[in-house]
Amino acid sequence: MIAHHPGDDLLLSYAAGSLGESWSLAIAAHLALCPVCRDAVAAAEHIGGVLLDETPAETMTAGSLEDLLTRLDEAPVETFEPVAPETAVLPEPLRGYIGGDLDNIPWKSSGGGTYQHLLSTNDLAQARLLLIPEGRPVPEHGHGGRELTLVLSGSFHDQTGSFGRGDMEDADEDLIHTPIAGRGEDCICLAVTDAPLKFTGFVPRIVQRFIKI
């Protein structure tokens, strides 16, 4: 069972369409693993539907229906061809960003035995995959802003609790924490930050200048 969920504000913004790409990616990946939040987003989308219904109608440009009717025959009906593999660890839409599953992540060392892979998103936030070897800590750090961490494989724990697959830690700038990967399995997470992480130790700060976390 998933114990840690993103804040309602994120689910609402995701449903409204006002959430940037990196955050939306984390939310969508969490939704794949969390039926409870899927229900919540469905509820929020109903708000959009109801408000659409109640919006006073504007006048469409003359002839727009007729134009559209002539285009219908050319419009191919969207067919639905599932190309998904039979099993997967990473949920969509994450696999689409990587072009594959766990084995296809081009990890780069980020020091201290940890690895990362920066994902290409077009908003100001940064989405990255992190690999923390079992039992190892991520250097103690705070955040210049919000940080979402979604566990995809393995687990970690910090001062606020224990996080397994599908759990999302929603941390703000007030949290300074040292996440430690659980034993038995490397921890792979999707992390989204809207400002660079602030490492509190001296050496990690030097490292940070090179690895651009």
């Binding site: 790409e21 039926p35 998904a84 839409p93 998103t121 077009n122």
Partner: peptide, 18 residues
């Protein structure tokens, strides 16, 4: 936005059903 809209795939094998 020139951004993608990340959406889940209801047929994803990784999807945990309700």
């Amino acid at each position: 936005r020139r951004e993608k809209r990340p959406e889940l795939d209801p047929n994803d094998p990784a999807l945990i059903p309700a």
